[in-house]
């Protein structure tokens, strides 16, 4: 039966990959730095490796969904990320898409 578990964990990883972006965008209406974001998401039940999150933040910034700023006032300089106006719009749209996707998937599961 271990192969069932293995397959499921592989599929779950694929499913999770898309949801992580929504999770990240949802938390960035306030500026956050990478590791604080890991902690926040963890507390809300979405676990993400810092090794995945940091490059992801950078990618989202390149896509102009996020803006970033270095805060060098503290003892440890940190890069803070914040949703850009464009990112905000994308995020809201994305939430609508997500809801409609969930309802479609649920109705499919219920019918089966």
């Amino acid at each position: 039966m271990s192969s069932v578990n293995e397959t499921i964990s592989g599929l779950m990883q694929e499913l999770r990959r898309g949801t992580i972006i929504i999770g990240v965008l949802s938390q960035l209406s306030e500026p956050q730095y990478g590791y604080s974001l890991v902690a926040i998401l963890e507390a809300k039940g979405i676990s993400i490796d810092p090794g995945t999150l940091y490059p992801l933040l950078r990618r989202l910034e390149k896509q102009e969904l996020l803006e970033s700023k270095w805060d060098t006032n503290e003892a440890r300089p940190r890069k803070y990320y914040l949703l850009s106006p464009f990112g905000k719009e994308v995020y809201e749209q994305l939430c609508l898409e997500w809801r409609s996707m969930i309802s479609s998937v649920e109705s499919i599961i219920d019918q089966a």
Binding site: Y33, G34, Y35, A39, P50, Y54, R58, W70, R76, P77, R78, K79
Partner: peptide
């Protein structure tokens, strides 16, 4: 171009993780 930035970022991350 990205090197210095990522270097600093990773440094901060590792220190945060250690502190945690």
């Amino acid at each position: 171009k990205q090197r210095a930035d990522i270097e600093q970022e990773l440094h901060g991350l590792i220190e945060d993780m250690l502190e945690h």
